[in-house]
Design a protein around this nucleic acid. Sequence first.
DNA 1: ATCGTTCTTGTAATCGTTTACAAGCCCGAC
DNA 2: GTCGGGCTTGTAAACGATTACAAGAACGAT
Lengths: 330, 330
Amino acid sequence: MSRPTIAGVARAAGVSVASVSRVLNGLPATEEMIERVQRAVDALGYVPDSRARSLKVGRTFQLTLAVADVGNPVYVTMMRAVEEVVSAAGYRLVVTTTGPDVVDEVALVRGMARGYADGLLISPIRVDEDLVKSIRECEVPVVVAGNVPAKAGVDTVRANSPKGMLLAVDHLVAKGRRRIAFLNGPADTVPGAARSKGFTEALKAHELQPAAVAEATDFTFAAGRAAAPDLLAAGGVFDALICANDLLAVGLMHELAAAGLEVPRDVAVVGMDDSELAEQSFPPLTSVNLGSAERGRRAAELLLARIEDNERAPRRIVVQPSLSIRRSTP
Amino acid sequence: MSRPTIAGVARAAGVSVASVSRVLNGLPATEEMIERVQRAVDALGYVPDSRARSLKVGRTFQLTLAVADVGNPVYVTMMRAVEEVVSAAGYRLVVTTTGPDVVDEVALVRGMARGYADGLLISPIRVDEDLVKSIRECEVPVVVAGNVPAKAGVDTVRANSPKGMLLAVDHLVAKGRRRIAFLNGPADTVPGAARSKGFTEALKAHELQPAAVAEATDFTFAAGRAAAPDLLAAGGVFDALICANDLLAVGLMHELAAAGLEVPRDVAVVGMDDSELAEQSFPPLTSVNLGSAERGRRAAELLLARIEDNERAPRRIVVQPSLSIRRSTP
DNA sequence: ATCGTTCTTGTAATCGTTTACAAGCCCGAC
DNA sequence: GTCGGGCTTGTAAACGATTACAAGAACGAT
């Protein structure tokens, strides 16, 4: 009454287990053999056990995608793209949340050695020596969506934040805004550092000084709201605002409204990531598209390619940004 | 140079594989044995292969959560709750997206027979005979987050939509709104049907007639926008609007604004799910909290309990709703 | 000193597949 | 008629762990 095994099918069909396996895997066999096996499989309702198969062939046909926060809509975009690529290649996708701590990321990468997935696609929010080391030593192929030192010797796909910042600043300046403020996420994160640098450079390119700068404790909606007093304390000195991601931008816009400031008339707001939230927010948020979908797609492709051939030289792909203009800017 | 196996550790430690396994699994052993094994494990950097372990013990320590659309923020809430419970119990969570088609759901449930997960937590959006049958016959324990006939003989955790609808209508009526419209999702879905019924009943309880009713093609932001003309064609006949979920509500609010209607002055809007989006939208959305987090938590607990004891009688839990009042209603 | 218990450890079977290898068969060519 | 080559199929050895069972050691009681 319990689950039939390949041996049961073989017995029922009056053939060997090897033949059953061959038929099931599409290896050459006579018409009659295929017929008999198929009949027995259908009769017993046999389904091969993927655990046993995994052990033997050394692959699980699972890939892991690790992100910091499933509540961040940018990961939804990325996840969709990754899922599409890997499922087309016959893999299941395991999505894990690491949280904001680098130690959890390291633990995750180390844990891959247990062999429950054939590859790891990680988008680390904080990077340290330990993480780089664990990635380099990881038993299974790893692709990083984000910025990690070249010495990690790993395939990476990253965004071009500075260029994205420049697009944002260009746009604001073109609309006549000169007093530009910046709300960053935590500066000790990889995206936080990149965006801070990008903002400074972009302003320099236009020979402008930052009107105000604040740093949220996290890349979340709540942190965006919480950071508002810091910026507003500077009182009306800015007429434009760039936020390090869409969640921060939306959080902050709520507080701008509460303070009686109208977007975009009083303050133009630009987010980053161009996630679904940018479109959904009100007013719809102009946002720097850092190519999350494309990054997800490219990263998934790199991972599949590396699983095929682990000897290939690591590639470092940079995806170029674009600007999605919506009504939060004039 | 390749990955060490338990045999390698045994050789290095000069003990048997059984002893290594016992030490690693915390079974009784002498101090000296533990010491020697531990030293060898550390020296070789041995990590047990979960594929082999899965085969032998018949468990993968993975659970699958299947939802229709990862872009729907209500699933983020649910996923967080599920993840918390299952990871505390030592399981990994595999999140899969089924899409809106029932055939894909059926395929997923059937596929569980392959044994890559120890249990399935599914939130089906459409339910038919096939799905019920596949759930009943599923090789691994299944818990349904949603409504499925009792004859499926499966643990379920569901929301109380009618009660939720009543809370929404009560609130609107208390605020003096009498001309209440309703934007549903597809009526051929389980939540769609439940909400439609709930809306009718709730109005009847207040002896009101529906001011307008429309049906979106999907539970998405885009579908909410697209449904606007249908409702607005009725022109100003409603002063309140209930939407079958938050995404629809937010989508529709964009169109209300475009049509020059102000929320909540001209139209009060109530969403359902009380997802993160409700808080993030502008104005913040009054929303019926259908207990997604609690449903996720309870469902995960049921699943774990059933894995422990598959003979227990199926339980059918109903989670009661509450109303989160925000600024989209007066 | 002998026996029986208890505790520790090792040997080997097992989980359900895949796959290397060998054996058997059929067929055409010599 | 025999032989070689190509197909098909079967036998059995993996994959890397867990665990039932047996054997050996230690020790106390008689």
